[in-house]
């Protein structure tokens, strides 16, 4: 593990920092030389980074940098042509997205992808689907294991509902909720999965300052209370610098920076990518 980290072409300082850290913490997700292309278009080229257990990892970059593609690779919606994905100490073979969800990766989406015809409660209960196993016969009778399971998970979901302060919209179809609340319900659905890794795709996009603050609070609370490892994409730099433990920067499908927030802030490549650079 140590060897591999030092081999990576990252800035010197970051390498030592990371080596130290990874000695203390476990690597939850390790992406090695990921390349993804659609037809002739290269979405991601040769990207490597890791996510440590218990950290908040931010993925940033300008529009079209490949951030969402990165998340889609992590939860198995896209299959990279090259590279290895190590999750929880094991190399991941070819898997369907739902199998990856069962392994313990949950996510939210950039454009809200809630089940609009279902109530908040049902959306959250669906988030727990990977933990439910009662057979169709008992479900049909609503007895035995099926009933016990429903109740146990209902209790778990109610805790999340309390945590996110959405008790009053428990039975409201989510299609009728305002945008900010929908975002919150979507976070709740991802939380309900009790996953090892939580992927948040622009959780604060389109929100006003207050909603953003709320959302930040929730993310930090989730992190503190449940100890969930979080990877998030965000555009708002101030938010990222405040809440992320480490940041990886993508631009045009390449990794141009990786490290602690203050390193990223002073990284010349990153500044160029965001502010543009004068070409001769």
């Amino acid at each position: 593990m140590e060897n591999r980290v030092t081999e990576e072409p990252t800035p010197e300082a970051a390498v030592t920092e990371r080596a130290e850290r990874s000695a203390n913490a476990d690597v939850l997700l390790d992406l090695r030389n990921i390349s993804l292309s659609f037809g002739g278009v290269k979405a991601l080229s040769n990207i490597s980074f890791d996510i440590l257990t218990g950290e908040i990892r931010a993925i940033i970059g300008p529009n079209g940098a490949g951030k969402s593609s990165m998340l889609n690779v992590i939860n198995g919606f896209y299959h990279p042509q090259e590279g290895e994905i190590w999750f929880d100490g094991k190399l991941r073979g070819p898997m369907k997205p739902y199998q990856i969800a069962r392994q313990g990766i949950a996510r939210t989406f950039q454009n809200i992808a809630l089940f609009r015809g279902m109530s908040t409660l049902d959306n959250l209960m669906t988030g727990r689907i990977t933990h439910m196993h009662a057979g169709i016969f008992w479900q049909a009778l609503w007895k035995g294991r099926a009933e016990r399971e429903e109740l146990a998970h209902r209790e778990r979901v109610e805790r999340i509902i309390d945590f996110l302060e959405i008790q009053s919209i428990r039975k409201t179809p989510v299609g009728r909720l305002p945008y900010g609340l929908q975002k919150r319900v979507e976070l709740g659905r991802a939380l309900a999965a009790d996953s090892k890794l939580l992927l948040l795709d622009e959780p604060m996009a389109g929100m006003n300052i207050e909603e953003k603050e709320d959302m930040c609070r929730f993310i930090l609370d989730v992190h503190d209370q449940f100890g969930t490892t979080i990877a998030l994409i965000e555009h708002d730099m101030s938010v990222v610098m405040d809440i992320a433990d480490r940041v990886v920067v993508l631009d045009y499908g390449k990794k141009i920076g990786d490290g602690y927030p203050d390193e990223i802030r002073s990284n010349q490549d990153v500044i160029d990518a965001y502010l543009g650079v004068a070409h001769d």
Binding site: N75, G76, F77, K96, P97, Y98, A101, R102, A106, R107, F109, A113, L114, F115, R116, G117, M118, D122, M125, T126, G127, I129, T130, M132, A134, I136, Q139, W142, A146, E149, E150, R189, A190, A193
Partner: peptide
């Protein structure tokens, strides 16, 4: 129950449903 919710999840947004584990 679980089955009904997975049906409705597929109906409302099949891709998201698969990604969250249906």
């Amino acid at each position: 129950g679980r089955l009904g919710r997975s049906w409705m999840a597929i109906r409302d947004m099949d891709i998201a449903a698969e990604i969250i584990g249906v």
